[in-house]
Amino acid sequence: MKVALFVPCFIDTFFPEVAIATLELLERVGCEVVYPPDQTCCGQPLGNSGCQQDAAGAEALFVRNFAAYDYIVAPSGSCVHHVRDHLTAIPQDAAAKHVRAQTFELVEFLHDVLQIRDFPWARFEHKVGWHNSCGTLRQLHHAQPSEINAPFFSKPLTLLAGVPGIELVSPKRPDECCGFGGTFCVTEEPVSARMGYDKVRDHQQAGADFIASADMSCLMHQKGCAERLGLPLRFVHIAQILNGSVR
């Protein structure tokens, strides 16, 4: 199976190890992975700011970069949400429609498309608090949000259950937004930081050593909060756990 890897801009710059883990994991499970070198960003920061016109260039480039592939996979829920639900600043031609329909977040790609459940090559002997990022939880439907009266399910927790040694702990407010929110984290700094503080304290009180998520942007914010508060928490992307790159 041929898969194009989309590496979101902040992962490229700040967390290349997450992209490397994603690449290795996809190859490990049998995908032929291509990295289109002209990729930049999906346009989400612009779209979320209301700047549709300014987002058009990045969105058009995104479609050009990825139109030739059957599957496009990214280790970031909010970026995939943008591509799937909000990539509307450009004309919706066949290429744009194809790219939007065929872009998957890593967890759902592993869970739904490849249907992998076991990760015997991985090992993670730590207490892990799972961070449900809002983009994956309520937009990509990774899991059943607590607001909805329907049976529980969680794709990321199902995948993590296949990792030997892992122990999951649950914070008191597992669905509460951490306050990253894209540009919100700087434009609404006081509320954003307070939400981040509350989030990392909730995980720490639950006994977590690691906070793990499918969204590195949320973790970047939470890490900044935890470090400022002096909390001994560590942060890891689910790709790093599933690939066995962090043990």
Binding site: F15, P16, I20, V186, E189, R228
Partner: peptide, 22 residues
């Protein structure tokens, strides 16, 4: 993100850019 780190750094530590991008 239009000059975020003034706002970012008030109550949060900055992320460290990696030596090498992906």
């Amino acid at each position: 993100l239009y000059n975020p780190f003034n706002a970012w750094g008030k109550q949060r530590e900055l992320p460290t850019p990696a030596a090498q991008t992906f």
